[in-house]
Simulated assay, not measured.
Amino acid sequence: MNAAGAQHDVDGDVYVSPRHLASTTGTGGPALAPLLGLGWGSRHDDLGNMYVDAPDQRVRVGYLPEGDDDGLWRINAYKDPFGPPAWGVCFNDRVPTEFVHAFTAALATAYEQGPDAYLAAPVPRSEDREPFLAVVPLLKHGWTLDRRPLDGVFEVAPPDGQAGLEFTTGTLDAEAELTTRDARWQLWAGTSVDRPVWYATASTHTPVVLLRAVTECVADPAPLARWRKDALSYIDGMATLTPILPPSPPAPTPLDVQRISARRPTALPPASVPRWSSASRPALPGPRR
């Protein structure tokens, strides 16, 4: 959402910048809309958690406000509907909703293209599936790359140092990638990666096009609209909050002018000149000749 754009659709009273210091909007509908719009099935459990399934059962999404941990969003894809996940992504309960929507929108597009798109694992030195392509949007917007050779981790961080994207090299435990934060990719914001305010993880075989959709959204310099009174809507003390000015009244259209004119009172007729009658005062006699 651009601060300079149309403000009639803005849901909030402040803009939060940089946007990685915003937090969740507290609603799951916008992020589920791209998938439900394709006709994916949905159901709820007794606790209010929502589960969305692709028609071929190869992609499953869990929106889990009453889950066992802070993993609010869990998204898995399968080569075999009855086998283990080919890849998995998790967004915790404070990730900005816009970032989740960026992922689900890209997933919806990939799903329409078929399994070769939504199951396309990253391949080093591939023209369009190189893992590093997911990092490029951040680098183009001022994030810097750092490598920690001892633990084989590449990290990119924004100028304020209040966020980061980590890519871990080497062999990882496939099950741990799906159930813990020990995944190939981890995106976070807060004071440190050990105690982030929000985080997102993605396993080794998550398609680059889906990862890049998220990093492009994170790198976007436009602020995000939030409500100042909502303490979870931004990272207090670090984010810059700019009041959203009320929209300017629109210029009247010709139809508006016509309606206003029609409501005005009709002008009074000009005063009439009285006619002579028998009740009129007789005229004075003129001078004699």
Rank of each mutant, 00 (worst) to 15 (best):
V153Q: 09
L64R: 08
A121E: 13
D9H: 12
L21I: 05
K140N: 15
T242H: 07
L72K: 15
H44A: 11
H141F: 12
D45V: 01
G142T: 02
T109S: 14
A231C: 03
A251L: 12
P131V: 15
W276K: 15
D68Q: 08
P265K: 13
N2Q: 14
H205N: 15
V61A: 06
T25P: 04
Q57E: 12
Y234C: 10
H44V: 00
I235T: 10
A157K: 15
P34M: 01
A157P: 00
V257S: 10
P274K: 04
G28K: 08
S192V: 00
Y234P: 09
P250S: 15
R58S: 08
T253F: 03
A231E: 15
E112C: 09
L32W: 07
G67Q: 01
G71F: 07
H205M: 11
V14M: 09
E130H: 09
D56H: 02
A222V: 02
L224S: 07
H44E: 12
H101P: 06
V123T: 14
T191L: 10
D151P: 00
T215D: 04
A108Y: 08
P223F: 00
A3C: 02
T253V: 01
P137R: 03
T168D: 05
D13H: 05
A200N: 00
H101M: 07
E216R: 13
W198C: 02
V218G: 06
Q258D: 08
L284F: 11
P131F: 07
T171N: 02
L119F: 05
P159M: 04
N49Y: 01
L133M: 12
S272W: 12
D13G: 08
G26S: 00
T27D: 14
T97G: 01
F99P: 07
Y51L: 06
A189L: 06
V95L: 01
N2F: 14
S278P: 01
I260L: 14
D46N: 14
L187F: 02
G71E: 04
S203R: 12
D70K: 10
E127Q: 14
Y234K: 01
D69E: 10
A176N: 09
D146F: 15
D220M: 11
L36S: 06
V214T: 00
G161R: 08
D11E: 15
A202G: 11
G5L: 04
R226I: 00
S126T: 03
D9M: 12
E177Y: 09
D230P: 00
L210M: 09
M1V: 12
P221Y: 11
L210N: 09
L119C: 11
L36Y: 13
V153T: 12
W198S: 04
P270H: 05
V257Q: 05
V156D: 00
G114N: 05
W40D: 02
R281I: 15
L224M: 11
R58V: 03
P65V: 05
A189K: 07
Y15G: 13
M1C: 06
F167N: 11
R181P: 00
V123M: 13
A134T: 03
T97N: 10
